[in-house]
Simulated scan of single mutants.
Amino acid sequence: MMTETIRNIVEAIRESRNALVVSHEGPDGDAVGSSLGLAAFLRAIGKEVVVHLADPVPELYRFLPGADLVTAVIPDRDFDLAFVLDVGEFRRAGQQFCSFGRIGRIINLDHHLTCEQFGFINLIDVEAAATANLVWRVAAAYGFSPDYATALCLYVGILTDTGSFRYSNANREAFTVAGELLEAGGFTAWDVSEKLYESQPRKRLELLVRALPTLEFIRNGQAASLTVTTEMYAATGADAELTDGFVNYPRSVQGVEVAIFFRQLDERRFKVGFRSKGAVNVATIARQFGGGGHHNAAGGIVEGTLDEVKRIVYGAVESIQW
């Protein structure tokens, strides 16, 4: 059923000539997939589209149609609409976009628990498995039949944000829409899985080899952490985008309810990611560090040496009830 919010978005699209599409810094599969899927849909119905990401498209997702058209610099021109996808907080769209003023209306699509309602229109549904699902709701309400590019990009957004349909957010809509996209797009599940999971660069495994010995357990094995430092990057030639999925290793251990991933940004700053198996709302932990996210996946930035950061974060995890 078309909600009033989606009806308003569809009407805004019909009235527009062009659009700017943005997502969050450090884009993941849903950020890239939903952005490129929305752009493919809008281009297919005759709109001019610019996709801007503050950080480059990770190598893992560069096979997606339209990835080569993503720009790091927003053109100095007027846009009727700006679609802001999956950011949670407005600032996460990047400094360049946040200071850009040549936009008619902002449309905010998101599924984060902590999402800010900064748009002229806000389509926020924390029950949606991925922002790609929200993009598909809009495209379907428009009456659009998915082409290859739209279907593939949105499928990747759903697949990655549900952990290949392993996570608790893999609800009925996620499976239904994924099936529709597979059928309409003319590709197979293996086509995508082979590119995402069977083609990783060697240096990712070399980085993982260095990270796994950092595995630590707290709370009698109920929580576990993994760490990647800048020294590890230098030794392997890997970078931050290749750490995607590392947090799942401590979470996969029997008895672990919360996994923590420490990723060094510079000498005294660490990005801390949290994953839960469901018993703990890790977004509440991340908020203590100025971050946010979902019940089962969240993160924030903590300053200090590695030992100091661990002491702060472990203290926060130890203090919660579950």
Score class of each variant (00 low, 15 high):
2 M>T: 14
3 T>R: 06
4 E>Q: 12
6 I>D: 00
16 S>Y: 03
17 R>T: 12
17 R>N: 14
22 V>A: 15
23 S>E: 06
25 E>I: 15
33 G>Q: 07
34 S>F: 01
35 S>L: 09
42 L>H: 02
45 I>G: 05
46 G>K: 00
54 A>K: 12
57 V>Y: 04
58 P>H: 03
58 P>S: 10
61 Y>K: 03
65 P>L: 10
70 V>Q: 01
72 A>K: 03
72 A>I: 00
79 F>K: 10
81 L>C: 13
84 V>H: 12
85 L>M: 10
89 E>Y: 07
91 R>F: 05
91 R>L: 08
92 R>V: 01
93 A>S: 14
95 Q>I: 09
97 F>N: 15
97 F>E: 11
105 R>A: 15
106 I>N: 06
107 I>D: 09
108 N>V: 01
110 D>V: 12
111 H>P: 05
111 H>S: 06
111 H>Y: 03
112 H>E: 05
118 F>G: 15
124 I>N: 10
133 N>R: 04
136 W>V: 09
138 V>D: 06
140 A>L: 11
142 Y>G: 06
142 Y>K: 02
145 S>A: 12
146 P>N: 08
147 D>Q: 04
149 A>K: 03
149 A>Y: 06
150 T>Q: 04
152 L>Y: 08
154 L>Y: 02
155 Y>T: 08
161 D>T: 11
164 S>M: 03
165 F>L: 06
165 F>V: 02
169 N>D: 06
173 E>H: 03
175 F>R: 12
176 T>H: 10
177 V>E: 05
178 A>Y: 00
181 L>P: 14
187 F>S: 01
187 F>R: 06
188 T>Y: 09
192 V>P: 02
194 E>P: 00
198 E>A: 12
204 R>V: 04
208 L>W: 13
215 L>A: 11
217 F>S: 12
218 I>P: 02
220 N>F: 01
223 A>M: 04
225 S>R: 04
226 L>Q: 09
226 L>G: 11
227 T>D: 04
232 M>E: 03
237 G>A: 01
238 A>N: 07
239 D>A: 12
242 L>T: 07
243 T>K: 10
245 G>P: 00
246 F>H: 08
247 V>M: 07
248 N>Q: 01
252 S>A: 14
262 F>D: 01
268 R>G: 14
272 V>T: 11
273 G>Q: 04
276 S>Y: 06
276 S>T: 06
279 A>Y: 01
281 N>D: 15
283 A>D: 04
296 N>L: 04
301 I>Q: 10
304 G>S: 11
304 G>T: 04
307 D>L: 13
308 E>M: 10
310 K>M: 12
313 V>Q: 00
313 V>G: 00
316 A>L: 09
316 A>S: 12
